[in-house]
Simulated assay, not measured.
Amino acid sequence: MSYWPLLGILGVVAGFALRLNPMLVVTAAALATGLLAGMDLHLVIATFGKAFNDNRIIAVVWIVLPVIGCLERFGLQQRAAAVIRGLRSATVGRLLLLYLLYRQLTAAIGLHSTAGHPQTVRPLVAPMALAAAEKQVGELDEVTTERVKAYAAATDNVGVFFGEDIFFAIGSIVLIQQTLLTYGYNLAPLQLALWAMPSAVLAFLVHGSRLLLLDRRLGRARA
């Protein structure tokens, strides 16, 4: 048995220790491992291609990101903010509360990839929340701006984290099931999904209260 291919692992450790680009480090380590294992360069590249083709969901990233970039270049964030400015009753808390509800419901039926930080928070939700905050307090300082952005990001995290476990056909449910099994608790995925509902409701109430308190804080700042 040859241990030379294990040098690829050493390359990964060294690359991360030197804080090099992770993608380049992993790619170089994979190439080195393949070559040291006796594979020719053509076969190594072909193996990369087959793995990429077998996991076609990865290719979606290369489609979504340029589309979002083009939309932002042609004014997506500005248009989203303009919509909010045209709504009299729009506030940061109400807007993010609606997004939290949407995020939890879609995650609960397995559609957790329909939204997220790159797809919705950065190009849509955060600009809309900032526009609502400007309506409430006027021009925003840096601290308030960053706080509103943080609440927008946190809302997405809370919604998907506590909503996705209601959908029993997901990896997190399998992980919980197997962990409990090691301690002698044999539960079906559907049982775990049902017991995730109270946690999701409680998370909605807690974070929803924080969003409404944010509205009150912004209201006092204006006064």
Rank of each mutant, 00 (worst) to 15 (best):
A90D: 06
A90N: 06
A90F: 03
T91C: 05
V92S: 10
G93Q: 09
G93M: 05
R94C: 10
R94Y: 10
R94S: 15
L95P: 04
L96S: 04
L97N: 12
L98Y: 12
L98K: 05
Y99S: 08
Y99Q: 07
L100I: 06
L100N: 11
L101D: 12
L101H: 10
Y102F: 14
R103M: 08
R103T: 11
Q104R: 04
Q104K: 05
Q104L: 13
Q104Y: 03
Q104F: 05
L105H: 06
L105M: 15
T106N: 09
T106D: 07
A107G: 14
A108F: 07
A108C: 14
G110C: 03
L111K: 02
L111N: 04
L111V: 01
H112M: 02
H112G: 09
H112K: 01
H112S: 09
H112A: 09
S113T: 07
T114S: 06
T114D: 03
T114N: 01
A115H: 02
A115S: 12
A115I: 00
A115W: 00
G116I: 00
H117Q: 14
H117L: 09
Q119S: 13
Q119V: 04
T120H: 14
T120C: 13
T120R: 02
T120W: 06
V121I: 15
V121M: 14
R122S: 12
P123M: 03
L124V: 02
L124D: 01
V125Y: 05
A126Y: 03
A126W: 08
P127E: 08
M128H: 13
M128T: 13
A129P: 10
L130Q: 03
A131I: 02
A132Q: 12
A132T: 06
A133S: 13
A133E: 11
E134P: 12
E134V: 06
E134F: 09
K135W: 00
Q136V: 00
V137P: 08
G138A: 07
E139W: 01
E139H: 08
E139C: 01
E139Q: 13
E139N: 04
L140Q: 04
L140A: 08
L140F: 03
L140W: 04
D141I: 01
D141T: 04
D141G: 14
E142G: 05
E142V: 08
V143F: 13
V143S: 15
T145G: 15
T145H: 14
T145K: 11
E146F: 02
E146K: 03
V148D: 10
V148S: 10
V148R: 04
K149G: 04
A150I: 00
A150E: 12
Y151D: 06
Y151S: 08
